[in-house]
Design a protein around this nucleic acid. Structure first.
Lengths: 343, 343
DNA sequence: CTAGCGTGCGTAAACGTTTTTCTATATTGC
DNA sequence: GCAATATAGAAAAACGTTTACGCACGCTAG
């Protein structure tokens, strides 16, 4: 009891009175070994509390049973929920999940990819990152590291998963247009990221259907602290004529916008309509409740894991691209454009 | 270019015309090797794009440079932010972070601990989990796996980090008492978890100072879906006499409470005062803004990592216990108890 | 001129597995 | 009773590192 060093298969073999090769085959039930010794060996293993060393196995089997996941912000609920769901599915399949936070910096991402590669992860799931260097990821995958993109474009040949941000923005915009809004302010995450690009495209598409040109002055697309978004919202409201509706198309845009509007005593939806992407407690419980476009984050995580597992299993099958649909939830934050757009 | 198999140190040694032992010593600048060959070897390594295999290193060096972290819910912002900060600090120190979601199930936690142990993580950070089996964790640590508890009691001999939930609840309760409230409803996460226990203790302490007995009927402590919390809040409000204030001491208690109150048209703070733990967008932007007790999640993650790194480095030094202080933020959700407690 | 010593480097063992190859024994068929 | 064959299990190689050990060489000192 004093010496609690870890038991190896050698100990098990010795205890069972067989060679280590036989012990291994007995434990894994592979190769030819008599039923009697299987029992002897497994008994010994149980008695010793033997657990095979995953590192040694990895080295020998050339597979670590670990997949890495890289996102810009682990604490962003939009990623955190996805990670949770992905981890759950991967766990079921015997994989563990190594996470990395890129802070949306290209160098950091590259560093982490290198690191994970040295750690010999079996696969990599990468979220969007501003510095698109698709050639890097493509190289990775054409090497021997399966890569699944999440809301991230790289060549058509690669499998990946995309939320249908374009359609989400399209429907949200149409909703506002149907209410009579024509000057719609757009707050989005960076247009350098795939989600931002797609959202702006969907927005433009809906406007185009009504013959309304995209007004660049009404679009603000960059990454966001809440305070900055608030000031952006106010600066947008000081335009003349002022926008009559806000489309908050980023994960943390809604809070900033509401704060900005509150500061200036602007009422929703009386003075201005607000529509968000992503359903949060804030959207649900704010007064008035905020209409939004949302999608199933658990499904996203699950499908990412699924995609990865498929790539990890028998490699056949074309690269798959999955599109996650979005739903529109109508609440009380949108109305017809108000008359009080004067100073 | 067609054959892109991974380069090993053997390739580097061959390219530099030395033995693999020498190559290793040259790359690591350890042992005796002439400056000239150091240059030849590093050159060759760079030219070949050699990256040492972390798995093989782990096997040899008996250290994986990976730490595992187990929490009940990866998507809970209270954990997600901590994970992000911890990962950042660990990354700086050359460690990677393996995450696991326990869903607050003891069996799952045990499974993950075994799994991580087999993966030979260098250390383990464990958050609270309902099934306290401290003997397990203690055994782990007294074995050779450093364990850092996060809001989780195990023996006094172990190092860990605790948020000062007791003081947080104490101050929140005092605030309400000073406003004149005497019937305070308490919604908390499970009392089986350390945070829940501490909070209830702090609450009781503040009450005791005023000579008020803890009223079990006003306490609801279990894990929570938002809908369930809403119904709990309503059931509490139907007591006679009804509580005049709500203390929402769990990560997701506030949303449920507000929803329940809203459904019944109860006004905050007119009909009932509300006080929350944890500052969220919802608390900040709700009308009225919700007073709360909060603390620095980044600091928590950072200190967890720091504690772990210290344990991982030179092992000397007593086990450390860190207490994270909390701050009270007063907003508009608390007032003097209303008169309208009649039906 | 030789004994001693420091230096550079090659050799080999070790980490804990899995798997291939090979040997010894038992079984079968004639 | 003996050859052919099947089968259990042992031995050893391999995965990619790091490191202890020892050898050869050149230098200094007596």
């Amino acid at each position: 009891m004093t010496k609690r060093s870890r038991k190896t298969i050698k100990d098990v073999a010795a205890a069972a009175g067989v060679s280590i090769g036989t012990a291994s085959r007995a434990l894994n039930r592979t190769g030819r070994v008599s039923e009697a010794t299987v029992i002897r060996v497994t008994d010994a293993a149980r008695k010793l509390g033997y657990q095979p060393d995953a590192i040694a196995q990895s080295l020998r089997l050339k597979s670590t049973k670990v997949v890495g996941m890289l996102v810009t912000d682990l604490s962003n609920p939009f990623f955190a929920s996805v990670i949770r769901a992905a981890e759950k599915r991967l766990q079921q399949a015997g994989y563990a999940l190594l996470v990395g936070n890129t802070d949306n910096e290209g160098t950091r991402e590259k560093f982490l990819i290198d690191l994970f590669q040295r750690r010999r992860v079996d696969g990599l799931i990468v979220g969007p990152c501003e510095t698109e260097n698709p050639e890097m990821l493509e190289a990775l995958d054409s090497g021997d590291l399966p890569v699944i993109g999440y809301d991230r474009d790289f060549g058509e040949g690669q499998s990946g998963l995309h939320v249908d941000h374009r359609r989400a923005a399209y429907e949200a915009t149409r909703h506002l247009l149907n209410l009579g809004h024509e000057r719609i302010a757009l707050l989005s995450s960076s247009s350098l990221l795939s989600p931002g690009r797609e959202r702006i495209a969907g927005h433009a598409e809906a406007l185009a259907e009504r013959g309304i040109a995209l007004n660049q002055a009404l679009i603000r697309a960059h990454k966001s602290s809440m305070e900055f978004v608030a000031s952006e919202a106010l600066s947008l409201m000081s335009l003349r004529p002022a926008p009559t509706a806000f489309l908050c198309l980023g994960t943390r845009m809604l809070a900033g916008t509401l704060q900005g509007l509150q500061q200036n005593g602007l009422k929703v939806p009386g003075d201005v309509s607000v529509l968000a992407v992503g359903d949060t407690d804030l959207a649900r419980l704010y007064t008035p409740a905020i209409s939004c476009v949302t999608w199933d984050l658990d499904l996203v995580g699950q499908m990412l894991a699924e995609l990865m597992l498929r790539r990890l299993g028998d490699d056949q099958g074309e690269p798959q691209r999955i599109m996650i649909p979005t739903q529109f939830i109508d609440r009380q934050s949108c109305g017809a454009p108000g008359q009080c757009s004067g100073p």
